[in-house]
């Protein structure tokens, strides 16, 4: 079987072999989380920051994440750029790195991100030296602003968080893939490995999945399935010959005159 050499994902100068990012929310147990990370070989994992429960002494989730995995702290809970900054500062203080997923949501019905506030937060956090991975609604103008602001990647949503509806924003994501030079990580809404493969076939650089794995009957199994689907989709993308996609339609000949 062929392996593609040197097809690594590079974000902010760091190299990753896996293009499958895993979110850690909603798992039924921390063990299930650890097993899913292991089964998928995910190298980047998102976490959130919350007040610790001072009445119950719970184990910290960090202990279940391997040390070599890059922690991507999200700013979930932030409703605007200012709150995102506050969370980012707290995250940096924890000493677990300076990678931040900017997630600014002021919408409790659909959990759609506020693109404008996301741009603001990104600009400010980049200036403070954070590695910023902004989560956004796919929009070419916003994406360009994020690139100009210094974002390390763009993370457009496939469909609303937790909806498992797949790539409802497919056409818009394709435009971002076509026009934006920094890595595109499709995040949110991917409900099945086939959808992850589809995103990779389109040319996405990576995907992030949380709900579909965490709430599955066998998270470990589906985590592995997602990881393999991402690899398959990536191979398909790398092998694609544009010519094969040209469909021949029966219609009057246009080039006969060249061969007469």
């Amino acid at each position: 079987m062929m392996t593609v050499q040197n097809d690594n994902l590079i974000i902010a100068g760091k190299t990753f072999t896996s293009r499958f990012l895993l979110g850690t929310g909603k798992f039924s147990s921390k063990t299930a989380l650890a097993e899913s990370i292991a089964a998928s070989n995910s190298e980047i994992v998102t976490v959130a920051l919350r007040r610790i429960d001072i009445d119950r002494h719970e184990e910290n989730i960090i202990q279940y994440i391997p040390k070599n995995v890059t922690l991507l702290v999200n700013t979930s809970g932030a409703r605007n750029a200012k709150e995102a900054l506050r969370i980012a500062h707290l995250a940096r203080e924890s000493g677990c790195g300076n990678w931040i997923k900017v997630e600014v949501i002021n919408d409790s019905k659909y959990l759609l991100p506020d693109n404008a506030e996301t741009v603001k937060a990104t600009e400010l956090l980049v200036k403070e030296g954070f590695i910023v991975l902004p989560y956004m609604s796919p929009d070419l103008y916003i994406a360009r602003e994020l690139v100009a602001a210094g974002a390390a990647t763009i993370m457009p949503l496939g469909s609303p968080i937790g909806s498992n509806k797949g790539l409802k924003t497919k056409e818009l994501i394709q435009i971002l893939i076509n026009e934006i030079d920094i890595p595109i990580i499709v995040d949110a809404g991917l409900g099945a490995p086939s959808q992850a493969a589809e995103a990779m076939e389109m040319g996405a650089d990576a995907v992030l999945v949380n709900t579909a794995v965490a709430t599955a009957g066998k998270p470990q199994l589906i985590a592995q399935a997602f990881a393999e689907a991402v690899k398959a989709g990536r191979l398909a993308y790398l092998s694609g010959l544009p010519l094969e996609k040209i469909s021949a339609e029966a219609s009057s000949p246009l080039t006969g005159f060249l061969y007469e």
């Binding site: 929310g25 909603k26 976490v47 959130a48 919350r50 910290n60 999200n74 924890s94 949110a188």
Partner: peptide
């Protein structure tokens, strides 16, 4: 006083 730490999140 606010004491925060990591929890699971997407």
């Amino acid at each position: 006083l606010e004491l925060v730490s990591f929890v699971g999140g997407g």
